[in-house]
Write a protein that binds this DNA or RNA. Structure first.
Length: 219
DNA sequence: TGCCAGGCCGGGT
DNA sequence: ACCCGGCATGGC
């Protein structure tokens, strides 16, 4: 996929329409970079509301730091993140991430993000439990790196606009955005947040002719 | 009530 | 190289 004037125009128009309609989304809805990393893992295939409860438990217990979570027994972690669902597997994934963070960067996110982005991306993807979306969410929303995040909402919306085909992969879709938009973390941040907002605002499955959609093509 | 939510892994073809 | 079952809660 190379730069494509038509795609460029449509993607910019979609962004403009969404921003005009919804305004800035102030993403990621987390306080610190570390909280973003934890949230990115906890929200895998899970409603954000359930994740917020889990994060709020960790906050209350003052456990929301790499060192504290690294030391916390996994059984206790399972209890605290119970509301986020898949608690056993997610506790293990959080531990995998923390082990990685301490092994490679002495537990410092700051050090981790000093790594060259592409190198860090490859390394994060090798952590068990971190796939493309979780990895890119960490890079963009915790590390402020210009990497576009793709999720199910994004794919669904682009399908409706016929900007991609059904069989497009994560990387196909990511390339479409990154080849055709200016390489800006701020833009990627807001754009993806707006797509999620749109995905939540309208029910694409049950309301095929939603009236409130700001994008005329999504009905 | 049943369906869905800001995925990813591992085993089977 | 795909395909699919499993993982689990809380809200509507």
């Amino acid at each position: 996929m190379t730069k494509n004037r038509r795609a460029e125009k449509r993607l910019n128009r979609i962004y403009r329409d969404l921003f005009n309609s919804f305004g800035p989304q102030h993403w990621w809805p987390g306080e610190t970079s570390f909280e973003v990393c934890i949230g990115a893992i906890l929200t895998q295939n899970t409603n954000w509301q359930n994740v917020e409860k889990a994060i709020s438990n960790l906050t209350k217990e003052k456990l929301l730091s790499p060192r504290k979570l690294h030391r916390l027994p996994q059984k206790r972690l399972v209890q605290l993140i119970h509301s986020s669902g898949y608690f056993n597997i997610k506790a293990a994934r959080l531990k995998e991430f923390l082990n990685f963070l301490f092994d490679k960067y002495g537990g410092s996110l700051e050090k981790m993000f000093q790594e060259k982005t592409q190198v860090l991306r490859t390394r994060l993807l090798s952590v068990n439990g971190i796939g493309p979306e979780t990895c890119d969410s960490i890079l963009l929303y915790a590390g402020n790196k210009p990497i576009f995040v793709i999720d199910t909402y994004t794919k669904r919306i682009l399908l409706r606009h016929k900007l991609i085909k059904e069989d497009a992969t994560y990387y196909d879709i990511q390339e479409l955005f990154m080849e055709n938009l200016s390489k800006s973390a701020k833009l990627y941040n807001e754009y993806h947040a707006l797509l999620v907002r749109l995905g939540k605002e309208i029910c694409l499955k049950n309301k095929p002719k939603c009236q409130i959609c700001p994008l005329r093509k999504i009905r």
